[in-house]
Design a protein around this nucleic acid. Structure first.
Lengths: 305, 305
DNA sequence: AAAAGTTATACATATTTTATACATAATCTT
DNA sequence: AAGATTATGTATAAAATATGTATAACTTTT
């Protein structure tokens, strides 16, 4: 078997001069922070030279950010050491503004602006909030905008690529950390828009699940071997309303009798074909991502008994 | 048992001066690296002269890559030694080994292992080397494996999602840093495998281009508005061999007459439909990514005059 | 014989490390 | 308000490391 550790041997380590250049913080100061507050504890070489990781650098950037906003270094240190959740002192309902900015950026194919807005939102709110407050409404808005405009397909592709990269990176990053139950997630055949599954996967990750993500348009017959090989704890499918309920029933039915683990179905079909889904002994999921995950969790527990 | 190399005959060997010229590393320094850290252990002639392989040169490029990012040579050495000490099964070519590991990981839908191997390769070699030596052959290998096996579609989806996330994250990260000429990149209609475009985009980024990536299956009529709005410097399309050359000609022809910037076509079609591409006044690109980029660069220069 | 390689030793310079000191501003005490 | 204390960035010194390059004395290639 392959016994490769998800270790830090793959993480890159930088000497203090590089970190100093990159962050603009005097190396003397970096050392002082470490000595005085225990902030940033870089690894050391055998001879004692400091080795900073990218993560450390990100942390420093975060510190600089707060410094620039007037916080004292001592306070920041206490915050970080106690991992105190920062109070979100932002009462502005900026979602509409965010959305407008993003639409403009997309129209210009301007990845810089697009990213700036998105990052700004992400720095203030957790993923699932950004997802439900910004991304979902935005996708809807864009759907309308794209009805019949020239360049709209290109816009859609551009934004799809961007968003998939962004969410995908996050998914990947988080997935490697999780140790909870394993879920197989896939889109139903005919479903080409994988954002539903991807967003769902992200929500799942935030609840600690491990997710095996199989993307769009997968024949359900493919799922049995996957479930067998991976010993997953559940299967989650998602599909939009455009699917045929009868056809769906047949597929689900054969899948459910082929595997011993529970099968969930989310997305719009869960609404439109609810009866057929239940008749096939699969479990429909509400559209609300978080609620859906709760159902999955409790069902898995019941199943484990 | 170490010096039983089965593929010596096929491997070319270079003397130190050549390696020095090729990499820009002083030969004195190369020897110092070897003496001090045991980095790069080239074969020797019976009289002791060093013989470097292409793989050694790739490794050196990888080292230079990391040096340029601010890591210290000592640390790089420690990393590499630690890594190579991890597995001593040096009978197979390193790339074959990587490939085999990745195939195994995919068959198990094991993202951890998959990621470990990929990261391992990426920490030793620069992107374009990993791309051409590992990813491309791997995709080909997988294509064969997937011909008629159960679970193969799921495997393909799984790996696609993984690789797209991985490459996409890299693309996104790098793209925001670049300031060079702007290229619009897209797949031709009917082309659903966007890896070609994505890999090409990554190579482009490594040469400093900014890339507007539009993904798979885009109608060519969409490209005019994009070119207008973004003031891009060139358009690069990619497609596999399965496209109809005549149809391609019509599309290219109308595109080329609609825009003032050069239009390039890469991927297998560049080979199979070369005539039609040239007749449409587009520019076919060789399959080799790096070479293709060179053509793009020189063409843009000519166009700028 | 000239050019290029090899090892081994020696430098020169740049970086790092720890520890101590200092300067200035903010905060607290009396 | 004056003085003491704390907070925080920076400076400096002395020793240890890190790292590219040079040189000497031979050997091998061309």
């Amino acid at each position: 078997m392959i016994t490769m550790l998800p270790n830090n041997s793959t993480t890159e380590h930088f000497p203090i001069r590089t970190v100093s250049e990159l962050t603009g913080v005097n190396s003397v100061t970096l050392r002082a922070w470490e000595r005085r507050y225990g902030l940033i504890k870089p690894l050391r070489t055998p001879k004692g030279h400091r080795l900073y990781t990218q993560n450390d650098i990100d942390l420093i950037q975060g510190i600089l950010d707060r410094l620039s906003r007037g916080m004292s270094i001592g306070q920041i240190a206490r915050d970080i050491l106690h991992k105190t959740a920062e109070d979100e002192t932002d009462f502005l309902d900026a979602w509409d503004k965010y959305q407008q900015h993003m639409i403009n950026a997309i129209a210009q194919f301007d990845e810089h602006s697009l990213d700036a807005v998105y990052n700004d939102a992400m720095s203030l709110y957790p993923v699932d909030v950004v997802t439900s407050r910004l991304i979902m409404p935005l996708l809807e808005q864009l759907g309308m905008r794209w009805e019949n405009k020239t360049g709209s397909i290109a816009e859609e592709h551009f934004f799809s690529v961007y968003l998939r990269n962004k969410l995908g990176a996050r998914f990947h990053h988080q997935n490697l950390k999780n140790t909870g139950p394993k879920l197989i997630m896939a889109c139903l055949p005919g479903e080409h828009h994988e954002f539903g599954a991807l967003l769902f996967a992200l929500t799942g990750l935030s609840k600690g699940f491990q997710v095996i993500l199989l993307g769009a348009d997968l024949p359900v017959t493919e799922l049995r071997p996957v479930a067998d090989r991976t010993k997953a704890d559940g299967i989650v499918l998602s599909g939009s309303a455009s699917l045929q309920c009868d056809q769906l029933f047949d597929q689900l039915n054969s899948l459910c009798s082929a595997v011993t683990i529970p099968v969930f179905v989310g997305g719009d079909v869960a609404d439109t074909c609810r009866e057929q889904i239940e008749k096939a002994e699969a479990i429909p999921l509400l559209r609300d991502l978080s609620g859906a995950l709760t159902i999955v969790t409790s069902q898995l527990k019941r199943n484990a008994k």
